[in-house]
Design a protein around this nucleic acid. Structure first.
Length: 188
DNA sequence: CACACGATTGTCT
DNA sequence: GACAATCGTGTGT
């Protein structure tokens, strides 16, 4: 099912750009959105939550490709990773920004009063817009209410690589990837 | 048990 | 551009 994520984490991160997420809510409304910005983390990376090995917090990162790892930070924000690689390898791709395709009403309900460009242009904003919290951590992304849909891989010339945002370790690595010129990418 | 800090965001100057 | 909000996790005593 998720063989296409069964690679090194940087390749998986670039393959995830342009792929789509479908979120279905209890009231039967739904959202479809395209992944436009990501960051790659694996167990050899001092900036990764999995660097020191499995723990109660990060165990979802070791479940293998196609699972969701949700973490809670700054006492108020959730962020989500798509786990990549084989089970036992603590690697994942942080979803940093989305481009809404369908279900704008549901997104606006989750993030009231904000202009279109500020609904999903950040990792915690993206989670809030999709209503993602701990109840979806360890979720298998082949099943409702949250699914990951493979799309055609983007050509390299539509992908830009930069250093990651908001980390203090391994700043030199170019492991943030986003779609060139996309309006919904987060700020620096 | 105490404490420092974080893969962030929104608000205020 | 600076800073507060707010708490789980990891590390050290």
């Amino acid at each position: 099912m998720f063989d296409w994520l069964h690679t090194d984490v940087e390749t998986a991160a670039k393959r995830l750009l342009g792929s789509e997420i479908i979120r279905e809510f209890d009231d039967s409304s739904s959202v479809r959105a395209k992944i436009v910005e990501v960051e790659a983390y694996d167990q050899t990376d001092p900036a990764a939550h999995s660097f020191a090995g499995p723990s109660p917090r990060n165990k979802a990162m070791f479940l293998g490709s196609g699972h969701l790892y949700v973490y809670f930070t700054y006492g108020m924000h959730y962020c989500a990773n798509i786990v990549t690689g084989p089970a036992g390898h603590g690697s994942g791709v942080l979803i940093r920004a989305l481009q809404p395709l369908e279900g704008w009403e549901a997104i606006r309900r989750n993030r009231p009063g904000l202009p279109d460009g500020q609904l999903t242009n950040g990792p915690a904003k993206s989670c809030q817009s999709l209503g993602i919290d701990f109840s979806l951590s360890r979720h298998d992304l082949s099943a409702p209410p949250l699914r990951l849909i493979q799309t055609e891989y983007l050509p390299e010339d539509q992908i830009l690589a930069t250093s990651r945002i908001g980390i203090s370790k391994a700043r030199n690595k170019l492991r943030r990837f986003y779609i060139t010129g996309n309006r919904y990418v987060s700020g620096e």
